[in-house]
Design a protein around this nucleic acid. Sequence first.
DNA 1: CATGAATTGTGTATAAAGTACACATCGATA
DNA 2: TATCGATGTGTACTTTATACACAATTCATG
Lengths: 246, 246
Amino acid sequence: MATIAETKVPVNVKSLKAIQSEVKNINRIALSVDCVIFGFDENKLKVLLIRSDLKKFMGRWSLLGDLIDVAEDVDEAAYRILRERTGLKDVYLEQVHTFGKPQRHPAGRVVTIAYCSLINIQHHKLSKMENELHWHDVNNVKDLAFDHQQIFDTCYLRLQKRIQEHPLGFNLLPKKFSLRELQNLYEAILDTKMDRRNFRKKFFSMDLLIDTDEIERDVPHRPGKLYKFNFDKYEKRKKKWTGIDF
Amino acid sequence: MATIAETKVPVNVKSLKAIQSEVKNINRIALSVDCVIFGFDENKLKVLLIRSDLKKFMGRWSLLGDLIDVAEDVDEAAYRILRERTGLKDVYLEQVHTFGKPQRHPAGRVVTIAYCSLINIQHHKLSKMENELHWHDVNNVKDLAFDHQQIFDTCYLRLQKRIQEHPLGFNLLPKKFSLRELQNLYEAILDTKMDRRNFRKKFFSMDLLIDTDEIERDVPHRPGKLYKFNFDKYEKRKKKWTGIDF
DNA sequence: CATGAATTGTGTATAAAGTACACATCGATA
DNA sequence: TATCGATGTGTACTTTATACACAATTCATG
């Protein structure tokens, strides 16, 4: 039952000089970005991993990351890494969480900021050719280097939640997609099965899909219609939800 | 339409020594924590602010923050600041976002990790006595020092979202509370009005409130019953939601 | 101690959203 | 032209959200 009066809260009385001194000389820490890059291929949710080159983690997989430059904006660092690793620029990228246990990196104190990215894997079809980079099935990701397993788990959980609240999934699909592809995507990310009719009803009732008047090609059965997502319409009608649900 | 094969992705070939060198000598940045501490008093949502002591921000209010020590766990640093500023230990604390624009701090490059905390303001009734610390009405928070306005806005939005999905609000109330107090809290945080009967029905149907068999005292009208929140029951039944809503 | 003021406590009818479920249609293939 | 394997559609039922009104309790007052 301590009150502020009792606890004699120490107030902030540092001079700018003192702060500058601390900032410049004492408390400086290496900062990195780690990207959890998701893709969707063959009806599986995938994540892009690279083999760790550190002896300590010999042969184990890790996330794509790099140190942040002293003068570099943090978000910009994340975009830079994506650019360097995938050649892509205009992609979905979201900061998820910062991980800062003192012993998390063997090279010293490194605090890392995790970002989650969703990219269209079709643009990376040939990644199998690369020896060091690999698309992993998310259900098969384990024993990552550093604390990357925890970072991956956090980002995957975040993705599962966000995909239900925002139309992120379309970043993983081609511009034009069938409803079956869309449902496969949701089922893969949420690791669940959904009723096909109710799934369609739900998306049609949102009225955010544009019928392209095209149909699938090269499928060995009746082809489905192809749709585009109406991003403009979605942006215009973002609602403020005030239900309570827990 | 670049593929990985075309873009010649550079692979990670740094040795541990090279990384150590970068970590130790080159890319080190000051890291801080800033806490957005919410409280609830007189049916208003409040946030705890302190006057900035920097000349540049003379007289303007700022969040409570401090530099993270080189060897200090990031979460632990956030708890330390809360302890130092409020004397409280076992409180709700959640990391929200990391802010890292290069010019955000006048003393040099400082990246800050924002945390959101909810505390029972009753334990701080006497904060008015302090000159440097003050509980501000959230609707009256503007023109904060540094980039703290952006940080505050981000945390407030996060709170509004989280309170609808998780029972965080009870951290802001006394252990025993009336349904009217609970509703006032939700209305204050979400800045909305709710129907009293439907609000009660909703919470009773969740079956997470424990009737304490006590009633309010010192109210100038019919007193309401007091309830406790059943945290145990809530923990046991966390559900996996797989709807789609956007 | 009777009355008025303020707030608590409760129920029902309606609308909206979610869920479960079956059959006809189309195109490719043999 | 018959079969296979998808697509495409509708309806009944259940659950949840919303709108809305009146009686009961306590305190304050004269």
